[in-house]
């Protein structure tokens, strides 16, 4: 349909040149000013995310695998999908499964185990790149090692958040991390478990994505 392309761009160019538009300057100050003292960021993130049913656990670098597996066992989860090629994944595998929880590595293309992914997995574990104080959001850049569906298909998404990786705003995280220099296949902000209000404005959690989001704060 290159005819359409030429026609569309031709019209746009011709009419824009006939009536050029001078936009006002973009003043990003109202975004830059969204700042919180470091000690207020985590409580704010927690408050905003808890307001949309996110659950929080506290842990250390030494005990988070136990905290996660204990929690999931308690909640009756039988299977935990994880990313064996990441550092966190290796640490988890080393610690071994707790109780009756089965650890399932996400180590092959989804095409080979779609059915199991959709029907046989209770929980998925991912890391995060940090969290955003302004809106209460986790930042995830899924990768070849830590695939996209880990945080989407399992009923419970468990996300590790390092307590020192906190940003004021999405804008700040994007600038500090120089995202524009190279975007990954997929970048995500996640601010709670999946939800809908499409039935008469009544909030219901767990529509198509995870029913529960559990953030483990690792200090």
């Amino acid at each position: 349909m290159s005819d359409a392309r030429a026609a569309i761009l031709g019209t746009l160019r011709r009419t824009r040149d006939a009536h050029p538009l001078t936009p006002p300057p973009s003043d990003f100050a109202p975004l830059a000013e969204k700042q919180w003292p470091p000690e207020e960021r985590l409580p704010r993130i927690r408050r905003l995310m808890e307001a949309v049913h996110t659950e929080f656990l506290e842990a250390t670098e030494a005990d988070w695998p136990t905290v996660v597996t204990d929690f999931l066992t308690r909640e009756g989860a039988a299977t935990l999908l994880y990313a064996p090629e990441t550092i966190d994944g290796a640490v988890l595998a080393n610690a071994g499964p707790g109780g009756s929880l089965h650890l399932i590595p996400y180590d092959r293309p989804i095409d080979d185990f779609k059915q199991q992914m959709f029907e046989g997995i209770d929980a998925g574990l991912t890391g995060t790149l940090g969290a955003i104080a302004d809106t209460g959001s986790l930042i995830l850049w899924p990768s070849a090692q830590e695939p996209r569906l880990l945080s989407l298909v399992p009923h419970i998404h468990v996300a590790l958040l390092r307590a020192d990786a906190l940003y004021d705003s999405f804008w700040q995280a994007m600038r500090d991390g120089r995202w524009a220099d190279g975007m990954p296949t997929n970048a995500l902000l996640i601010s709670g478990p999946s939800k809908t209000a499409d039935i008469e404005q009544t909030l219901a959690y767990g529509v198509h994505g995870p029913k529960r989001l559990v953030v483990v704060i690792v200090r």
Partner: peptide, 24 residues
């Protein structure tokens, strides 16, 4: 739109599945 500070998901897609990636 709905009076929420942000939607649950902000999904930014820049490429189809790359060599070695397991989904997408």
């Amino acid at each position: 739109a709905t009076g929420q500070p942000i939607t649950t998901y902000v999904n930014m897609i820049s490429s189809p599945r790359k060599e070695g990636e397991k989904d997408g």
